[in-house]
């Protein structure tokens, strides 16, 4: 009796978990289906990666293999995010990366990462680069960089009906920003020390999305945020937010490679320059006109 029961239980558990393993493959495949015809997602790459892993091991520097693994924070629109309609990852940077791969005959792998772990990801070789509205200013020595391609400014977002109009009005207010973001770096820098000192508090949250919810709920008064992210939020929540006219910092975005990986950087830069020269980059930027990207794009060296 007991033995039979135990056998039944065991069989049941195994059947269910096998079904689950099989089922999940099926599920992730089918989830791809909608987007599959357009672009390569991360899962198929996972399956086909035994060879890639070997190749990875063999090529510490150059991108000899044909996959190009772009690490990005998938919660960072408009540069990299989940397109709800297709279930695919998209964004300005990912579209650029896709075009670049098409030209070089590489297969693009879009690898979402946990932004807090970006250094470990790039050091350990799980990704080839970070192409995700990554701020170059202030991090010059930490990575091998492409040329800057976007002018970004860090702004203060407040509620549309807030009485805060200028940076001076932030005195005594609670300000929030994303943990480890360039906005945080800027606010904690010497140049902005005087401004930051006037805040009642400077809080950090891992997700800008949560920061905006916090502000709507009244938990914070202002958000220090990249202008592109702020504009995206404003588009999704019309009439809720406003940006202070005076930016708190200006900075530039570039593509980050593992320190010393100049070979790959040069390959990417070469093709990017072609794309810039023939207007493709601007064409892609125009897809994000709502986010002001055409104006922010760096078009000349």
């Amino acid at each position: 009796m007991m033995k039979k029961l135990a056998a039944m239980l065991l069989t049941g558990v195994m059947a269910v978990s096998l079904a689950a393993c099989g089922g999940s493959t099926a599920a992730s495949t089918s989830s791809n289906d909608s987007a599959a015809e357009e672009e390569v997602q991360e899962e198929p790459a996972e399956e086909a990666d035994a060879a890639e892993a070997e190749a990875d091991a063999a090529t510490a520097e150059a991108n000899d293999d044909t996959t190009f693994v772009v690490g990005f924070d998938a919660e960072y629109p408009p540069y990299g995010y989940l397109d709800e309609a297709t279930g695919d990852y998209t964004g300005f940077d990912l579209e650029l990366a896709q075009e670049l791969c098409n030209r070089r005959g590489w297969t693009l792998v879009k690898q979402p990462i946990n932004w807090d772990n970006k250094d470990a990801e790039i050091d350990s070789g799980t990704i080839d680069c970070i192409w995700n509205g990554m701020t170059y200013t202030g991090r010059e020595a930490d990575y091998t960089w492409s040329d800057p391609y976007v002018n970004n400014s860090i702004v203060m977002a407040v509620l549309a009906d807030s009485d805060i109009q200028t940076l001076a009005d932030l005195a005594g207010k609670v300000v929030i920003t994303q943990t480890e973001s360039s906005a945080q770096t800027a606010l904690e820098s010497e140049e902005l020390a005087d401004l930051t000192a006037t805040f009642a508090d400077l809080q950090k949250n891992p997700s800008y999305n949560t920061c905006f919810t916090d502000m709507q709920a009244g938990a914070v008064d202002a958000i220090a945020v990249d202008i592109g992210v702020a504009q995206y939020q404003m588009r999704n929540n019309p009439d809720k937010f406003r940006i202070l006219e005076e930016p708190i910092a200006a900075e530039q975005y570039a593509i980050a490679f593992k320190l010393g990986n100049e070979t790959l950087r040069d390959q990417v830069q070469e093709t990017y320059d072609e794309m810039l020269a023939d207007g493709t980059v601007m064409k892609i930027a125009e897809n994000y006109a709502d986010d002001n990207l055409p104006d922010m794009l760096i078009t000349e060296k």
């Binding site: 998938a74 960072y76 995010y81 989940l82 999305n209 949560t210 995206y232 939020q233």
Partner: peptide
């Protein structure tokens, strides 16, 4: 993870 990404894309919780 997907939920957070959709959340970010929609700017909604």
């Amino acid at each position: 993870t997907y939920a957070k990404q959709v959340s970010a894309a929609m700017s909604s919780l």
